[in-house]
Amino acid sequence: MKILFVDDEKDVEALFRQKFRKEIKSGEIELAFAFSGKEALNVLGDENPPKFVYVFSDINMPGMSGLELLDQIKIRFPNIQVSMISAYGDSENYDRAMNSGAKGFFTKPVDFERLKKEIAEMVKNQ
């Protein structure tokens, strides 16, 4: 199952690859990373239809924000699930994400147990 993580912090890639190394090794999931909303849309647009099943995106990023990316994905790739990961877990961000069709909302620092559970469930349903 292909998952795309979007965050403007580059070290997120090293961290998530290590946190999910077992799941990656077993072939359960495949991770890709984009460091801006634009890059994420490019990555998703590279394949037709994209094989990505799930996108996790940060909200506060230079240029396109995560919420805008969410809207774009919902328009262009309605089958892909999107969840937000943000340091700003206020109700305004939360409501906007949920109203725009986000599947879930994770706050930073990320609770990896919860994130793993979320992904495991998604894998099971595939």
Partner: peptide, 14 residues
């Protein structure tokens, strides 16, 4: 706050 939170998260996570 955001600027400090981000690196601190990395410190904790790594």
């Amino acid at each position: 706050a955001h600027e400090i939170q981000n690196p601190l998260n990395f410190v904790n996570n790594f």
